[in-house]
Nucleic acid binder design. Structure first.
Lengths: 242, 242
DNA sequence: TAAGAGCACGTTGTCCGACAATCCGACGAA
DNA sequence: TTCGTCGGATTGTCGGACAACGTGCTCTTA
């Protein structure tokens, strides 16, 4: 512990630039909406070339901490919940997350979330859920895409209705990942659609009645149905969701 | 609605470069571990200059889709779960997530996760949990940092024991965010520590007995305790976790 | 023959300078 | 007032250049 030296890492300059700006943002020195100095100014302050500064900026850009305004000038921004969810789900998918893992996460998180939502969803949200459900009922039998997007939208609406951005980010990232599998199920398992519509209707009624227990139970059945649909459709549970 | 024009966007070249490479990866044309052509080659293929290629690469780098290997050569990589969790939590923190939101998410997700873990944690995991708990018991009374990291490690170990990468990513990102608040609680609420140790011990016993019900109940109490600790410590629930 | 030293090469990190495209604000004209 | 125009500021892209570093080869030597 005494004579040991650290790996002696020397990170490239563009990374230092990135961290320096990032630190200014996270520490609060640069607030949301504040303009970031021009590239030329950053060059002067860091005493590096514009190429290096630009490479550093790109790293921040992807993180969502900075964005280009209408005037192309760089300013500080806060990551949007939707972007966070999309980025998380994409990373997990690329990491090889399997349908089994995604479904399990749904099964764990959504029933209690739905219970909580039963006490929080306002009338507008409930009526939006009814619209989604009606859209599935009226949809053309052949149009499976409507059913897929409707099923995902149903999940999303509940997550959004919680009024909790952290939960929304997590649940929505699950929604993104389940979509592809859901498509396979709905195309191959004919009975799936009716079951989805039924479960949604029950859940909506429970929401309207602010009945947490019933909401949770039906949400559980709804998600179990998805797993059953997978078996029927012959979807490989251990295959990565792509 | 008909005569409206779209914003007419034209994305910069470096973004196109980024997307082109990303598409090659997500489509499977480039697999995990595959080397990515050198910058010079990419210049030739895209018919752009190296500066532009490099800016595009930086975007991918942050996403975790590519990394520098030995010899500094670029190759395809899969995002690590830990990195995903860290990125998600960081984005949410920067987005202004409040303690209330994080705690609620914990309260929703962890009890059922713990129930599931009761059937899955192996003996090694349980003994690691016991070690963590013992570390808290033996820790110096003044050393609150040990308690904080121990409490977080306890949560992490349970999440990891589920054997589900998606859940691990989500739960761990919550763990990251709760850490700062936990620190405040433990420093200001003297009784918190004893309650944490107690709850952990009960949960571990339930794990050992593979008793899902008891595990879930004590996990719920454990998390409720954290909220109570907040009140005692005077932590503002609506303040952003930083 | 096999191990080690030394070197050429390829690749990346950083720098420099330059130009076109675009946006913004100001200024002047109808 | 509204519109066109212009100049300054800023970004996007280009081309070239050099140093630092790791890799693999060759050549020497035991």
């Amino acid at each position: 512990m005494d004579g040991d030296f650290k790996p002696l890492l020397k990170e490239p300059t563009y990374l230092k630039v990135c961290r320096a700006i990032e630190e200014k943002i996270t520490s609060g020195a640069l607030r949301n909406g504040d303009p970031i100095p021009t590239e030329a100014e950053l060059c002067a302050q860091f005493a590096v070339t514009r190429s290096t500064v630009r490479e550093g900026i790109r790293l921040l850009e992807q993180t969502g901490l900075v964005a280009r305004g209408p005037g192309k000038r760089l300013f500080v921004t806060r990551p949007e919940i939707g972007d966070i969810a999309a980025a998380t789900s994409r990373s997990l998918s690329l990491g090889g997350a399997t349908f089994q893992e995604v479904w399990e996460s749904l099964a764990v998180a959504y029933p209690p979330a739905a219970r909580m939502a039963a006490g929080r969803l306002n009338e507008a949200a409930v009526s939006r859920l009814r619209e989604i459900n009606a859209g599935l009922v009226n949809a053309d039998d052949a149009d499976s895409e409507v059913v897929v997007s409707g099923a995902v939208a149903f999940f999303h609406e509940i997550a959004a209705g919680l009024g909790n951005r952290v939960m929304l980010a997590m649940l929505d990232s699950l929604n993104f990942m389940i979509e592809a599998s859901l498509r396979q199920i709905i195309e191959k398992a004919p009975r799936a659609r009716a079951r989805i519509v039924e479960a949604q209707a029950r859940i909506i009624d429970a929401f309207a009645a602010k009945d947490g227990d019933t909401t949770e139970q039906w949400m559980r059945r709804h998600i179990d149905d998805i797993a059953r649909g997978c078996e029927v459709a012959g979807v490989n549970l251990d295959a990565p969701v792509l």
